[in-house]
């Protein structure tokens, strides 16, 4: 989790990724940020996130993003 939080903070240092649960629904992250996250996850974990997985539920919190990474890894 710490590793992911570091990646997310590199992209947006003004967001409380640890506690925020409405990153997309609350319009905290933009499409631009989400694409940065997709690119960073690909670089760090070598995971390609398919387009159908890019839905608000998978990016609303750091936990949801981590769950997506775990799912795609498995």
């Amino acid at each position: 989790m710490e590793e992911l939080l570091k990646i997310l903070r590199d992209i947006r240092d003004d967001v409380d990724f640890e506690n925020e649960t409405k990153l997309v629904d609350g319009k905290i992250l933009t499409s631009f940020d989400i694409i940065q996250i997709i690119g960073a996850i690909d670089d760090e974990y070598d995971i390609a996130i398919p387009a159908p997985q890019i839905v608000p539920a998978n990016f609303n919190s750091a936990e949801a993003i981590l769950a997506l990474i775990e799912k795609l890894k498995g």
Binding site: I11, I37, G39, D42
Partner: peptide
């Protein structure tokens, strides 16, 4: 450049 930016 940030990797995410290049993807755009």
């Amino acid at each position: 450049a940030k990797k995410g930016t290049l993807r755009l």
